[in-house]
Design a protein around this nucleic acid. Sequence first.
DNA 1: CATATTTGCTAATGAACGTTAATTTTACGG
DNA 2: CCGTAAAATTAACGTTCATTAGCAAATATG
Lengths: 196, 196
Amino acid sequence: MARIQTDKDVSRKEVIIKASAKLFREKGYKAASMRDLAVKVGVEAASLYNHIRSKAELLHDICFNVANVFFEHMNEVESTQATPIEKLEKLLRFHIKQMLENFEEVYVSDREWRYLADPYLSNFQNQRRSYRKRFASIIQQGIEQGQINKIDASTAVLVLLHAISGIDSWHRSTHKVSGEELEENIVTILIQGLQK
Amino acid sequence: MARIQTDKDVSRKEVIIKASAKLFREKGYKAASMRDLAVKVGVEAASLYNHIRSKAELLHDICFNVANVFFEHMNEVESTQATPIEKLEKLLRFHIKQMLENFEEVYVSDREWRYLADPYLSNFQNQRRSYRKRFASIIQQGIEQGQINKIDASTAVLVLLHAISGIDSWHRSTHKVSGEELEENIVTILIQGLQK
DNA sequence: CATATTTGCTAATGAACGTTAATTTTACGG
DNA sequence: CCGTAAAATTAACGTTCATTAGCAAATATG
């Protein structure tokens, strides 16, 4: 009988969530089956249900874990005394770092959240909307202080966030750019693009 | 008996493809069922098969129609005598315009192509890779001519293209900016972000 | 070593899926 | 107004899906 392997301090549930993040990223939530997941974990499909409640719960856990990480970082950034441009640079670098270090989860949270079921769906959308609003208001401050070009702040947020989410694993594996180099390239384009 | 409505010069197949693009955008290819599509078209699910061969064919038609449009535009741009920066601006403006005027198809082609079946999948990936390479080499020329910052060209391509695909959320957002304003905002950020 | 709990297995369920076959209805040229 | 081809319908098919029930094995606890 094949057991789910766990290092200490890592529950079997966490092993399954991690595997599901990879699977959902590779195939998409809807196309990924619990049987696929079982193979990845090394167990029969039915056995998964000793540890999790449902497929939906997996997506839910992934999305909200990621959302909370970004939310907390936003709190941190807002509480500092930095200029708007410096704050934006901090946010961008954090997004890039998360995308590189936590790729599967961040990617899934970004692209597959629409398959969340209510009430989690509306919840997630609200959190997302709120995050973008706070992001936009930092840009707006930069505009009012004359550091940033006069552009529509919420359009700029979309441009920045989507530009970063485009950095998927394909890029690093086939093109062999280091994480640091990647970060500098992106920050150069986007921060300079905003500045006057 | 409900017939599929057609204006002249529009086949019933084209009506179905158009409806499927909207459906695939709303729900995702895998989550969209032929029964959903039938409802949208106003007919029973089985009736669709008088006009199309399969669900897969619908995705295939959407993706390759879009890919061909962008491919042809790239040919056009490359054959002009403009500077690299001017060429990039042309490409960006075309992407934005396509995203605004042809939203459903472009979005589906961008996000759902991975559900294409071989050999169409490899075909599409090759075309995509080739397009990005040509895009990157325009950036590279700009770097060598000293108009563009010394950055990794293929990273820049991903940043630019994904930044534009971020328009999708703008489409749904209640706070609407006009198409022209949107275009200017995006071009401002991205072109200025590249330039020295 | 005994026993309780956790974890895994096999088997099965009902629902949803894409698609096909057989048949009926509609539109239209002669 | 008839005959024919196009288009729509109903009914069904074989799969695949997420999930459950019941039982066996492994592990933890004392």
